[in-house]
């Protein structure tokens, strides 16, 4: 690929050229700053490029959606961020947004309309599922995951919050791996422990941490890969695996990363 193709277009550049992308990729704070989740951002943009989706990002014009502030009870900070974001999105006339973060997804989709932000918002799991269904994305490469056990950890903000359970599983099915479910999955899935602002504080006193409870369940499936679709789940599950000293046997990956890894094999 040429250097030019590797460049990520911003909305500002597109608008300057009077262009409009098919979809805005909302990167999110973790996708922008967290070293681990930046890899997910890169994997997802790589897929977008491969299938020839004309996308753009806001770049430095993006701000946190405000989700952690709102869940922690700080409506002022939430609305300051939300109204700022809506101003930017509406200025560019954005119609469709895709994001790899279920918290951003939930806030943009369900909470921005009340503040004047009306967009079609999809989570990257649903977006990838769409590409697979359209035949634009499928099993290529050596099938690195053939016969391997993968378990999917449901993100609360994707699952119970928005009833998305099948899309991530359909994406995983294209890997030709053995998909094994944890005891608590889908509507009964156990939280990783990071939602509702917990990501940004120490847990309250208790017998054990929520992510440890969840990782024990994942280990019990015998899976060598824990698939996630949320930056907070990624941190919590990775920490849990480390805590159990299983980081050599069990890896935590996002859906987009798994698709890319399969191609490279």
């Amino acid at each position: 690929m040429s250097d030019n193709a590797l460049k990520i277009p911003t909305m500002a550049e597109m608008a300057a050229n009077n262009e409009m992308p098919e979809v805005l990729f909302w990167v999110g704070c973790a996708g922008s700053f967290d070293d681990r989740y930046k890899k997910v951002t890169l994997a997802f943009t790589k897929i977008l490029d491969q299938v020839g989706i004309r996308f753009a990002v806001l770049g430095t014009e993006e701000s946190c959606t405000g989700d952690p502030a709102r869940r922690a009870g700080n409506e002022f900070t939430f609305q300051m961020l939300a109204l700022g974001n809506i101003q930017v999105l509406n200025m560019y006339g954005v119609k469709k947004i895709v994001t790899a973060c279920p918290h951003c997804f939930n806030t943009l989709k369900n909470e921005y309309p009340a503040l004047g932000g009306h967009y079609e918002v999809v989570h990257h799991s649903t977006f990838l599922q769409g590409l697979i269904n359209e035949g634009r994305l499928g099993l290529q490469g050596g099938g690195a995951f053939k016969g391997k056990k993968i378990t999917f950890h449901d993100s609360c903000y994707l699952g119970r919050a928005n009833d998305i359970y099948e899309a991530p599983r359909q994406v995983l099915e294209t890997l030709d791996a053995e998909l094994v479910e944890m005891k608590r999955c889908k509507t009964k899935g156990l939280c990783c422990g990071a939602g509702g602002g917990q990501m940004f504080k120490e847990p309250e006193p208790g017998r054990k941490d929520v992510n440890i409870e969840r990782v024990e369940e994942a280990i019990a499936t015998g899976a060598s890969t824990i698939a996630v679709a949320c930056p907070f789940c990624m941190v919590m599950m990775s920490d849990g695996v480390k805590n159990k000293e299983k980081e050599d046997q069990i890896r935590v990956y996002d859906l987009a990363e798994l698709l890319i890894a399969q191609q490279d094999s």
């Binding site: 922008s32 700053f33 890169l42 946190c64 502030a69 900070t77």
Partner: peptide, 26 residues
């Protein structure tokens, strides 16, 4: 949480990163 709120208000991110660095991943 107060630190998180402050980061959100000054850096538009829950962590202490400069907003100017938001696009460095590219």
């Amino acid at each position: 949480w107060n630190a998180m709120f402050q980061n959100l208000e000054t850096n538009q991110a829950p962590w202490k990163f400069s907003p100017a660095d938001r696009f460095n991943w590219a």
